[in-house]
Amino acid sequence: METPIANESFPPAGHTEIRIVAASPEAARAVAEVIRRSFAGTEQRSYPGPDGSTRLHLTVDVESAAEPSRSWLTTSRPLTGAGTHVDEV
C-alpha cells in the first residue's frame, strides 16, 4: 500500500485519479478501457511496476459521462435473432 505524500497534488474538483496495477500492460489497458466507457478522461500514463507489473494512471471527469449509459435491463437482454430458429433442434 502506498503511503500518502504530504505535498501530493489532487485532481481538480469533479475529477478522480485512478491507479491500476496489473501483471501485464494488456490487462491494465482493458480495465482502463472499461472505465473510459463510463467517464470522460485524460490521457492515461503508464509506468513499470515492481516484478514486471504495469501501473496505469488516468484522471476521469466524474461529472461527465463518456457514453450514454444503458440500464441493466437493456444490457442483459439477449440479442434479437440470436436464439434458435423454429426449424432447429
Results as ranks from 00 to 15, higher is better:
residue 73 L to R: 08
residue 3 T to D: 09
residue 29 R to A: 09
residue 24 S to Y: 09
residue 29 R to S: 06
residue 68 P to V: 08
residue 46 S to C: 07
residue 85 H to K: 08
residue 62 V to A: 01
residue 6 A to P: 10
residue 52 G to F: 08
residue 39 F to T: 03
residue 61 D to L: 07
residue 63 E to H: 03
residue 27 A to P: 07
residue 43 E to Q: 12
residue 10 F to Q: 11
residue 85 H to P: 00
residue 39 F to H: 09
residue 24 S to I: 14
residue 60 V to Y: 01
residue 15 H to E: 14
residue 48 P to G: 01
residue 56 L to C: 02
residue 14 G to S: 12
residue 63 E to Q: 13
residue 60 V to W: 00
residue 13 A to D: 12
residue 51 D to N: 09
residue 25 P to M: 11
residue 23 A to G: 14
residue 82 A to R: 03
residue 74 T to L: 08
residue 33 E to A: 12
residue 2 E to Y: 01
residue 58 L to S: 03
residue 59 T to S: 01
residue 71 S to Y: 05
residue 6 A to S: 14
residue 31 V to A: 12
residue 28 A to K: 04
residue 25 P to F: 07
residue 19 R to Q: 05
residue 30 A to D: 10
residue 16 T to I: 15
residue 4 P to M: 08
residue 20 I to K: 08
residue 2 E to W: 05
residue 7 N to G: 05
residue 30 A to S: 10
residue 70 R to V: 06
residue 86 V to Y: 10
residue 54 T to D: 00
residue 49 G to L: 04
residue 46 S to N: 00
residue 5 I to S: 06
residue 61 D to H: 04
residue 54 T to E: 04
residue 46 S to T: 15
residue 9 S to A: 11
residue 37 R to G: 04
residue 36 R to V: 03
residue 29 R to T: 07
residue 59 T to H: 00
residue 18 I to W: 05
residue 55 R to Q: 15
residue 74 T to F: 04
residue 65 A to T: 09
residue 77 R to N: 07
residue 49 G to E: 03
residue 70 R to N: 03
residue 25 P to I: 14
residue 56 L to M: 03
residue 28 A to F: 00
residue 7 N to E: 06
residue 7 N to F: 11
residue 48 P to R: 06
residue 28 A to W: 01
residue 87 D to Y: 09
residue 23 A to S: 14
residue 16 T to R: 08
residue 44 Q to H: 06
residue 25 P to S: 10
residue 14 G to A: 13
residue 61 D to Y: 11
residue 57 H to T: 05
residue 13 A to C: 06
residue 88 E to Y: 11
residue 27 A to K: 15
residue 63 E to A: 09
residue 13 A to S: 14
residue 62 V to K: 00
residue 11 P to T: 07
residue 9 S to W: 10
residue 44 Q to K: 09
residue 27 A to F: 08
residue 15 H to Q: 15
residue 14 G to N: 13
residue 42 T to F: 01
residue 50 P to R: 14
residue 32 A to P: 02
residue 82 A to D: 06
residue 10 F to N: 08
residue 17 E to L: 13
residue 38 S to N: 12
residue 10 F to S: 13
residue 36 R to H: 09
residue 1 M to Y: 07
residue 37 R to E: 12
residue 35 I to Q: 01
residue 56 L to E: 03
residue 64 S to F: 02
residue 15 H to L: 10
residue 28 A to L: 03
residue 54 T to A: 04
residue 59 T to A: 01
residue 84 T to S: 13
residue 69 S to L: 05
residue 82 A to H: 03
residue 14 G to F: 15
residue 78 P to H: 04
residue 32 A to K: 03
residue 52 G to N: 13
residue 12 P to V: 15
residue 45 R to E: 14
residue 19 R to K: 12
residue 11 P to F: 05
